[in-house]
């Protein structure tokens, strides 16, 4: 048994290094130039949309229109959740815009708690926009800064490629539990956007590995499709999603296995593309 292990592991090493050296250019980042450029366009489109949507959302908050603000909360977040794979490149803004109450010692009452979820807390828990104007201004300012920064931002290949797996990891660790949008229960909107964002990266890189990693590609494609099928069950005719509370235990388990398996599989993308 041990002998078998040694043989198969030696073979694995030869195959792996063969793949890295043979199928791609000596500098793997050359193959990645086009997909990364395209990804940057995707991000820029989303941050532009985020600016537009956040303007409408924060205007509603500042106008004291609770119902309108509530209706815009989830759709506004979508373009942000799509680019979350690379959130580590603007982590200062991510904290300010998207942190959760439990990131702070005093939770909801902590003065440092700002951003989307602080406003969500006011809208749903207090059913009011009172005191939210300053958070709305700050969010608008953060979103604008983010949009401006993207143009000059360098996208390191390993961050983008790794980002797809990291985001799946995050969904598995802190989103599947339904703690992200705990006041509004709009978690399924975020899931959908997170999967779309991770899948975008994967789709852009897919041509680089499709030939040598046919089995891998089939499996990952299948898992993304399964996720889409499950989420599809919870879509509303208006294009949104029902409350997270309506997600059945069985479907949550399916999503949980898929997201963990995607995290597991996508974590090998960097290596498969020859990135260290």
């Amino acid at each position: 048994m041990v002998g078998n292990f040694l043989r198969s592991s030696a073979l694995a090493i030869v195959l792996a290094s063969g793949t890295a050296g043979g199928a791609f250019a000596a500098d793997p980042s050359l193959d990645l130039v086009a997909p990364l450029a395209e990804y940057k366009i995707y991000v820029a489109e989303n941050t532009a949309k985020l600016v537009e949507d956040t303007k409408a959302f924060t205007d509603a908050v500042k106008a004291g229109d609770v119902e309108k603000a509530k209706s815009l909360f989830a759709p506004t977040r979508t373009s942000y959740e799509k680019i979350e794979p690379i959130a580590e490149l603007f982590s200062d803004l991510d904290v300010s815009m998207d942190a959760r109450a439990d990131d702070y010692e005093k939770a909801e009452e902590d003065p440092a708690f700002t951003g989307f979820h602080r406003i969500e807390y006011g809208l749903w828990e207090k059913n009011s926009t009172e005191g939210l104007a300053e958070y709305a201004d700050r969010l608008m300012s953060d979103v604008t800064t983010l949009n401006q920064r993207i143009t000059d931002l360098t996208f390191p290949p390993e961050v983008v490629v790794g980002g797809a797996a990291v985001l799946m990891e995050e969904v598995a660790a802190t989103k599947i539990s339904g703690e992200e949008d705990r006041y509004s229960r709009t978690d399924l909107w975020d899931f959908d956007a997170n999967f779309a964002g991770a899948q975008k990266i994967y789709e852009l890189l897919r041509p680089l590995i499709a030939e040598n990693e046919a089995e891998f590609v089939t499996k990952v494609d299948g898992n993304f499709k399964d996720v889409a099928d499950v989420l599809g069950k919870y879509r509303t005719p208006e294009g949104g999603f029902v409350s997270y509370e309506e997600l059945s235990d069985a479907d949550r388990n399916v999503l949980s296995t898929k997201v963990n398996t995607l995290a597991e599989d996508l974590s090998t993308l960097r290596g498969k593309l020859g990135l260290g």
Partner: peptide
């Protein structure tokens, strides 16, 4: 039963 953990390309987890 135990045994050696297989080695893998260090670029992979």
């Amino acid at each position: 039963q135990g045994g050696l953990v297989p080695e893998r390309d260090p670029k992979l987890p």
